[in-house]
């Protein structure tokens, strides 16, 4: 009975195994990036970049149909253009980064929706927006896992610079010129990860996989290393549980994965020992020193 519920779908159906591998790859590499977005108060940046990817993917789609590489390259170019363009505009003008990013991604999104609806059907738009984790082919799966691996390796190399740049940017500027490059590489990783994510989960939900486990982990622990581990574990749990739910209920899997991640987030919000509501609801007696 339990076997039928939790294991059988993955044993019996190859598409379920592929979906599991793809979403687990994203669950391992996305949350660490999301954690730094949370800590750097850039939580909405992922969202903006994800919207910005749309016109690039759409142009790729218009040129060569549902081709992995065309849509990937298009998405990467659009995402990087918006990320770099808004960064340059923020440094060169009076507008702050959040304002320029909002402006750039809104234009990009409008362009994307226009392009998609000028040629494609609504079903295609749904594919780009919400992904198709149950229809991952070999090439897409290899790409997803490859991107996840590259992201994790690059993140490990960037880690020290990223921590110092976030805690004390003036100190980093005084000992090294790596600060600007660190920021750019970090944003590039976010873009790359979201482009990979939209094949499996769609542009909108790829952000959810990045941000929800990260925000939850921040509520559970005060230790950076633990947070990264917890975030990845929550992502994996959401991927697995979401797929099982989707299989048993015949509802779309991408949104269900994110809903499970959202449920875990709500639990962390209430019970998270490192800043959840539980501290307010059930205050413990203060210590002696």
């Amino acid at each position: 009975m339990l076997y039928d519920l939790f294991v059988a779908p993955f044993v019996e159906f190859e598409f379920m195994r592929r979906a599991l591998v793809g979403s687990c790859a994203l669950a391992l590499s996305g949350p660490p990036l999301g954690l730094f977005l949370v800590l750097r108060r850039m939580s909405l940046t992922g969202d903006a970049v994800a919207h910005a990817i749309l016109p690039g993917a759409a142009i790729g789609y218009l040129l060569s149909g549902l081709s992995l590489w065309a849509m990937t390259i298009g998405g990467l170019v659009a995402g990087l253009l918006v990320a770099i363009g808004s960064g340059v505009a923020a440094r060169a003008t009076i507008l702050r980064e959040d304002a320029t990013l909002a402006a750039f991604y809104l234009v990009s999104l409008a362009l994307g929706v226009t392009l998609v609806s000028s040629r494609g059907s609504n079903i295609d738009l749904l594919h780009v927006l919400f992904g198709s984790v149950l229809a991952l082919d070999d090439a897409t799966l290899v790409f997803l896992v490859g991107v996840a691996s590259v992201t994790l390796a690059a993140f490990a190399l960037l880690y020290r610079a990223l921590v110092i740049e976030t805690v004390d940017p003036s100190f980093l500027a005084s000992v090294s010129r790596a600060g600007g490059l660190t920021q750019s590489l970090f944003l590039a990783l976010v873009v790359l990860h979201l482009v990979a994510g939209f094949h499996a989960l769609g542009t909108l939900l790829a952000v959810g996989m990045m941000m929800l486990p990260a925000a939850s982990a921040r509520l559970v622990s005060t230790n950076m290393t633990a947070m990264i581990g917890i975030a990845a574990a929550l992502g994996l749990l959401a991927s697995y549980a979401g797929l099982v739910l989707s299989f048993q209920s015949a509802l779309p899997s991408g949104p269900l994965i994110i809903l499970v991640a959202g449920l875990l987030y709500l639990l962390a919000l209430v019970f998270g020992p490192a800043g959840g509501l539980v501290r307010l609801l059930k205050p413990r007696h203060h210590l002696e020193a």
Binding site: L39, V163, T166, V167, D168, P169, S170, F171, S174, R218, S221, T222, N223, M224, M227
Partner: peptide, 11 residues
Amino acid sequence: PQSAEIDRTFP
């Protein structure tokens, strides 16, 4: 640097 430039919320 002036201590105000440090992000003290970082874990």
